[in-house]
Computed example of a mutant assay.
Amino acid sequence: MDVGIDLEGLRVLVTASSRGIGFNVARELLKRNARVVISSRNGENLRKALDELSSYGEVYGVRANLFSQRDLENLVKEGWELLGGVDALVWNAGNVRCEPCLLHEAGYCDWENASKLHTVAPGYLTTLLVQAWLERKRRGVLVYLNSVSIKEPMPPLALADVTRAGLVQLAKSVSRTYGKYGIRAHSVLLGSFDTPGARENLRALADEQGKPFEEVWESEVLSRTPLHRTGKWSELGSLIAFLLSDEAEYMLGSTVVIDGAMTRSVSL
């Protein structure tokens, strides 16, 4: 089956990729002939994901807790050894522990959790990879999977929205500073995709509102876009493959929206 851009041999790290968005992105990249390292802090989930993904191409797994400095350093080290180098990072992260929750329900530890997950971890991984690429005089691409809700905030996801917003600045800063060395970054603002995490969040919201899950899924997800559906993994895979390819070089530092026209705002 023709899946568009061929990423033949491209060596990619995909974080938080044993399920949900990260897993499906890894699968789409493997379909396009990339060589991939996935990660998860859950060893059993990682094993199951590797079993399923191995039929699509060359894939390895590294156990990594995104809250751990040592694990982030080891992810880059092991990824580099397994693939013989790293050409790209696709950053993905799970949910802040307390979410969905409103601001007045969040404590100090919740803010700390959100900052470590959505600011510190991607920032430090970026530092590690940029250092490695500069030292070896190699090109590199960083794609930060983000949420379109940083444009139109969703109150129950305020902690994630606030801390993820910095990924847009990170992509621009990397590209402005290191673009001349062939190192570039992009931020991708995702709309609704059907994942276990999304369903868990909506189920919690439905329970809180005393409504059936399907009613909340319809009102909070499907009805928000004129297409009346969630995004397809093939669509997201094609976009990320393009951003990882040399064809997207002049788009360095860009923020790309893939949300089915869910949001009404026209700019950040």
Rank of each mutant, 00 (worst) to 15 (best):
G43H: 08
G43T: 08
E44I: 12
R47C: 05
K48P: 07
D51K: 03
L53E: 14
L53M: 13
L53Q: 14
S54L: 12
S55K: 13
E58T: 08
E58R: 07
E58I: 02
V59D: 13
V59F: 05
V59Y: 05
Y60V: 00
G61S: 11
N65E: 12
L66R: 05
F67Y: 12
S68W: 15
Q69T: 13
R70Q: 14
R70W: 11
D71W: 08
L72E: 13
E73I: 15
E73M: 14
E73G: 13
L75R: 04
L75T: 04
L75E: 14
L75S: 06
K77R: 08
G79R: 03
G84Y: 09
G84R: 07
G85F: 12
G85E: 07
V86P: 00
A88Q: 02
A88V: 04
L89Y: 00
L89H: 04
L89G: 09
V90T: 05
V90F: 01
N95Y: 13
N95K: 06
C98L: 11
C101I: 02
L102I: 15
A106R: 00
A106G: 03
Y108V: 00
Y108K: 03
D110H: 10
W111T: 04
E112R: 04
N113M: 07
A114K: 00
K116R: 15
L117H: 06
L117A: 10
H118K: 00
T119N: 01
V120F: 06
P122E: 06
P122Y: 02
P122N: 05
L125G: 12
L125Q: 08
V130L: 12
V130C: 15
A132I: 15
W133M: 08
W133D: 11
L134V: 05
R138Y: 09
R138L: 09
R138W: 09
G140F: 10
V141Y: 01
L145Y: 04
N146A: 03
N146K: 03
S147Q: 00
S147C: 04
I150S: 01
K151N: 07
E152A: 06
